[in-house]
Design a protein around this nucleic acid. Structure first.
Lengths: 234, 234
DNA sequence: GCAAAAGTGTTATCACTACACCCATGG
DNA sequence: CCATGGGTGTAGTGATAACACTTTTGC
């Protein structure tokens, strides 16, 4: 029951840029589009918004439908509205980016989508303006990660310093000195050293750490300087 | 001609949070709403999006209609989509924030709107979720201003260091040491000292400065640390 | 016993903070 | 001549960056 007369009404979609980290590389979860136009091509996961659904709910819903996960880190990225972005009919897309622990992703949760992880450097061409969304999401992730302890969302509950460092190095595409990195991370007091070690990736083994959740919540919005040299960022 | 069947189509509006600085205080440009519901109440300036109009264009258009200005600094803030945010009919709002040189604002440009500047601390209650938009815009402005030389967009072409400092002090709601402030600002090499002085606000007069536009463009995306003590920001 | 990765400490440099006095002018 | 706001320098402190060797253990 339209109340504002003579105004254009448009389709609204929510699309999710889903990041995961496999211990070595940053990855993106993509699906093969199930409907025309561009059926069969690679795409971000998305859905039209429902009648009485918030964007945030919509994003959480499609994320859950695809991965089986709940309580995932989600943040609105940007609203995309170029009139011709969907050639079939004008559609607004509100894009969200999500950070998930890749190990918790359940491959079999939903066979409606053909979903696949792609290394961030080797993503296929995506439909519509989804490539632009991915570029923007990568920038925002970098930007945020430079000052906020956001990257822990990509890691499992227990992780090692070398893992954390290689995550940061992947995001910022640069190498850090491990002594300085360790000192800086420890100085945040966000980590709690565990008694056990990860023996997978080395003979000596690296100590596991967990997040101090209290401090993490408190410091999340603080400005911290995680990366050594600001000039590394354009 | 709808092509995606059985999907909901919604109204899309663009709303602008317009900041200005009068030399002393940060201000917000608000209008009295011209249509029902909530007619006559204070509101951000906004408009439904047109058939083949981008968000960015839409924001620039309404900004121009209201203020007469072109080439204004505009940045997308957030898309707001709570189903009940407009009680009459569900409407998505894509909010932009704008920084303008208040001196260039032309009061007479558009009498369709009753527009008024309000000190940021003394804004009236706004319709719908516009108060929330303002809060978010203030946060984002602070956040960006802490690392990017964005506040120059609020100043006239020629300005003095004391003016600049009081702008920063207003934004961060704190006082800075003028010697340290001056040194830090100068170290960015973004400013070019002029030969003439502003004699309005003091007997001795303060030198005017202009932005070095080349360096400004180059450094805009760089991370700089404009504010003295990071702990001042939550 | 050796290769491979983890862990750890020191020094030099730089950036930031705190702080106080002189200057120019209009009235 | 004095009140007002503008402009400048320095010393102490804390954070960052550069840098190399020892430890553990699986093979």
């Amino acid at each position: 029951m339209p109340k504002y007369y003579k105004q254009t009404r448009l389709l609204i979609a929510v699309d999710c840029i889903i990041f995961g980290f496999d211990g070595t590389e940053l990855k993106l979860l993509l699906v093969q589009r199930g409907l025309e136009p561009e059926k069969g091509k690679w795409s971000l996961i998305g859905s039209f918004i429902r009648e009485s659904e918030d964007f945030e709910n919509g994003a959480a819903r499609i994320l859950n439908e695809l991965t089986g996960l709940e309580g995932v880190y989600l943040e609105q990225l940007h609203a995309f509205g170029r009139p011709d972005r969907d050639p079939l009919e004008r559609t607004i897309s509100v894009a969200y980016f999500a950070l998930i622990d890749i190990n918790q992703y359940e491959r079999q949760i939903n066979t409606d989508f053909h979903a696949e992880w792609f290394p961030i450097q080797k993503t296929p061409k995506l439909i519509f303006d989804h490539d632009q969304m991915v570029v923007m999401a990568k920038e925002k992730l970098r930007y945020k990660a430079a000052f906020h302890p956001i990257l822990f969302e990509l890691l499992p509950e227990k992780f090692t310093l070398p893992q954390l460092q290689s995550l940061y190095e992947g995001i910022f595409d640069t190498a850090f000195d491990k002594r300085n990195f360790s000192r800086k991370i420890q100085s945040t007091k966000l980590l709690v050293k565990q008694k056990d070690k990860d023996k997978e990736s080395s003979k000596k083994g690296a100590y596991y750490y967990k997040l101090d959740k209290r401090r993490y919540a408190a410091k999340f919005h603080a400005f911290l300087n995680f990366i050594p040299n600001p000039d590394n960022l354009k």
